[in-house]
Design a protein around this nucleic acid. Structure first.
Length: 274
DNA sequence: ACAGTATGGAGAT
DNA sequence: TCTCCCTACTGTG
């Protein structure tokens, strides 16, 4: 679930539900009992995201730092009558009269200082979902690296927020050879990929779903431009998780191999550009 | 019941 | 490059 658009959506939803309130903070599972006690009853100032990191600023310089990792989930729901029953392993629960947020399976959930937050964000590359992300910084890292572009796109210090789905799909959309070293990628190619990801991720945020299929992207862009809600549709991708299936353009079998610790999917015939 | 998988990342080797 | 952590769901026996 969690690539950058997910975390930005959660920050947005946390703000809508909790900004300005002083929620009860608990750790039903117990693994975050100390941190929960520290935050309990404090006022929430603002939630924000940088890449896949989620921060919630509470009053008096206490920040909640969450990273969902591969399997973490955060649900934010309006609260009905009574206290919603705890289901499964809930590391952290925020509760007000109106809302309940449950965090399960995070890679990281900690109370940290403002300095710590600065340290974390300083190590992250530009995030296409933050205002004025700096493409040049990312390009410098890419163009000076011997590592493959498929590895570089997964490196959060190069671009923050891209995960395996956006990586596979972005490379495919631009017909880029995933194994080409960063220093051999053309400037024009990078610029086009950067511009594309800067459009795709806001669509993903608006839809609550990664959209990379040309028809879905077009519909979403039109809806966004018209000020209409972007409705999530069928989960379809160009190459992601389509190993052995025919490429939607040329029909040759989609290939897969582990790159940077995740399964890369690509079309060996369509993706030859640099 | 158990194995395998998942949109991630840190730390050891 | 490997190993481990976190949770839930799917497929297999």
């Amino acid at each position: 679930m969690p690539e950058g658009h997910t975390l930005h959506g959660l920050a947005r939803d946390l703000n809508a539900a909790f900004a300005g309130t002083s929620p009860q903070v608990t750790s039903p599972q117990g693994k975050f009992a100390e941190g929960a006690a520290l935050l309990d009853g404090r006022k929430v100032l603002e939630a924000s995201a940088w890449g896949k990191h989620l921060f919630v600023e509470f009053e008096a310089d206490a920040w909640l730092h969450v990273h969902l990792g591969l399997i973490g989930k955060l649900s934010i729901l309006p609260r009905g009558e009574g206290v919603p029953p705890v289901q499964g392993q809930v590391r952290l629960r925020l509760l007000t009269d109106d809302h309940v947020a449950d965090l399960r399976g995070p890679n990281l959930c900690a109370v940290v200082t403002p300095e710590h937050v600065e340290g974390v964000t300083a190590r992250l590359g530009p995030d296409p979902l933050r205002p004025d992300p700096d493409s040049e910084t990312a390009w410098k890292r890419v163009s000076r690296s011997n590592r493959s572009i498929a590895e570089l796109l997964m490196d959060q210090s190069v671009v923050a927020g891209i995960g395996n789905v956006y990586r596979c799909e972005l490379l495919y959309r631009h017909r880029v050879d995933p194994f080409r070293p960063g220093r051999e990628v053309r400037r024009a190619t990078w610029d086009a990929m950067w511009q594309d990801i800067c459009e795709l991720m806001p669509l993903g945020l608006a839809a609550g779903q990664i959209l990379t299929m040309p028809d879905q992207v077009e519909d979403a862009k039109a809806a966004l431009a018209a000020g209409e809600p972007v409705v999530p549709g069928e989960r379809r991708y160009m190459v992601y998780r389509r190993a052995q299936e025919p490429c939607r353009v040329c029909g040759s079998k989609v290939r897969t191999r582990v790159v940077a610790g995740r399964n890369l999917f690509w079309c060996g015939r369509c993706q030859r550009r640099r």
